[in-house]
């Protein structure tokens, strides 16, 4: 009985409360007219690779499948209705390997039909696994000695660099691993392009005395977009 009374009392109160509430209409914010709606790379086998578009930061992040070794990308870009984009949809971007390692300075400018402009920076990356190198000199106090090659007399000395996740050479695409010799001062004295490259081994030729003077050097390997440097130096000298 008491509960019924309470309910009867509560009902008008609820109705009053409902009657008093003001209805506020919240305007849906109008979408900017200069947006990139989608960005996808179409020159890949089968399904396109989509980029992540961030309007707030003005970025497009594309993770390129590293195992395609794309040297050129062909993006298809969709923009707000009536907007234009420059560079236009379909315009090729080349030298991708270089842009992946050195950064791509590419911006897309979208001009809305109201004339307003928005800029998007293209960020290219891959998920290529990091490469690791086995030390040629396991003991830093006892550097392994490599003897100079003498090209003039066709005397070449070879050595193997072993490690993990090297990208085998892609001759047709001009992708080769490189081997750099870093001096004790930290300068790259010489870089050799390698043509004998497997996933766990790179066959290398010791440089000549003209290319790399006698001394201690750390060996640095760049394989596609990844680089690693041995911790311990090797000693390069003439026989």
């Amino acid at each position: 009985m008491k509960i019924k009374h309470l309910l009867l009392l509560a009902l008008p109160a609820i109705m009053l409360a409902a009657a008093c509430k003001k209805t506020e209409t919240i305007e849906v914010p109008t979408q900017a007219s200069n947006r990139i709606l989608s960005y996808k790379i179409t020159n890949v086998p089968e399904e396109p690779v989509y980029g992540a578009v961030n309007d707030e930061k003005g970025t497009i992040t594309v993770i390129l499948p590293y195992y395609y070794y794309l040297t050129t990308i062909q993006p298809e870009i969709a923009v707000s209705e009536g907007a234009t984009v420059s560079p236009a949809s379909g315009v090729l971007i080349d030298s991708i390997t270089k842009k992946l390692t050195e950064g791509a300075n590419i911006e897309y400018v979208v001009t809305g039909k109201d004339g307003s402009k928005a800029t998007y920076k293209l960020l290219l990356t891959t998920q290529q696994p990091d490469i690791t190198l086995d030390e040629l000199s396991p003991d830093p106090a006892n550097p392994t000695v490599l003897y100079h090659s003498k090209p003039a007399t066709f005397e070449f000395n070879f050595f193997d660099i072993t490690g993990k996740n090297f990208i085998p050479q892609q001759e047709l695409l001009g992708i080769f691993s490189t081997i750099s010799y870093v001096s004790e001062q930290g300068n790259v004295v010489y870089t050799a392009v390698n043509g004998d490259n497997y996933t766990t081994r790179i066959g290398a030729t010791v440089p000549s005395a003209e290319q790399v003077p006698e001394g201690l050097y750390q060996i640095r390997v760049t394989s596609y977009t990844r680089t690693a440097t041995m911790k311990n130096p090797v000693k390069i000298q003439s026989l």
Binding site: V44, P45, L70, L172, L173
Partner: peptide
């Protein structure tokens, strides 16, 4: 899709 085609990685 062919590893040794010059177009490898492309469409």
């Amino acid at each position: 899709k062919a590893k040794y085609s010059p177009g490898y990685g492309g469409p």
